[in-house]
């Protein structure tokens, strides 16, 4: 069982990657420097104020609507959220490339429309992952309202995605897979 508690920062639908990391900053390749600009153009004064505070937004949650992470393929988007130690994005749905980028770099995502509809800006949230596994089942406790929401594994979580998560990231999986390819007997 893994438990994390933090404040909810709420956003609407279609939070695209331009809003998560403004393109003007993408020449910065040092993720630590880039992370200071996370969600800058997406607004939410509370998130931005905490981001700039000494404690940062570590352990806090982003709560958003449909299609979080749409638009550009920039992996900087989950990378800056991970660097800021955001607990997870809890959304109604995620865009394809953002979703895979997050799994590849080990950033937690939770799909739970009921929780998104109920959680408001500033609520205190606790997330418990069953079996300590990201992307699987678990429960969200809203400590402010006392409500709880069970969440299911990410929609369409594939065998490959489970393997990537279990390997500890995309690169670990790729090295393991390449070695298997090289050991497999050649087709006649």
């Amino acid at each position: 069982m893994v438990t994390d508690t933090g404040t909810a920062h709420c956003y609407g639908n279609n939070v695209n990657t331009d809003l998560i990391v403004f393109a003007g900053y993408l020449a910065i390749t040092d993720i630590r420097r880039l992370a200071r600009h996370a969600m800058e153009t997406a607004g939410n004064a509370d998130f931005l104020q905490k981001l700039q505070s000494p404690a940062g937004v570590a352990g806090d949650y982003i709560v958003a609507g449909d299609d979080f992470g749409s638009g550009s393929s920039r992996e900087h988007a989950p990378a800056v959220l991970l660097e800021n130690r955001v607990g997870a994005v809890i959304a109604k749905s995620f865009s394809r490339i953002f979703r895979r980028n997050a799994i590849n770099v080990g950033f937690p995502l939770i799909e739970c429309p009921e929780a998104v509809n109920s959680i408001k800006q500033g609520h205190e949230i606790e997330v418990v992952y069953d079996d300590g596994q990201r992307y699987g089942t678990g429960i969200i406790h809203n400590r402010t309202t006392g409500q709880s929401f069970h969440f299911q594994p990410l929609k369409g979580l594939s065998q490959l995605e489970k393997e990537i998560a279990a390997a500890g990231g995309g690169m670990q999986w790729a090295v393991k897979f390449a070695k298997q390819l090289e050991q497999a007997p050649k087709a006649p």
């Binding site: 980028n101 590849n104 995309g170 999986w173 897979f177 390449a178």
Partner: peptide, 11 residues
Amino acid sequence: GSTDLAMILTT
């Protein structure tokens, strides 16, 4: 994504 690209270059 970027890690996807690195994975493709590897495998």
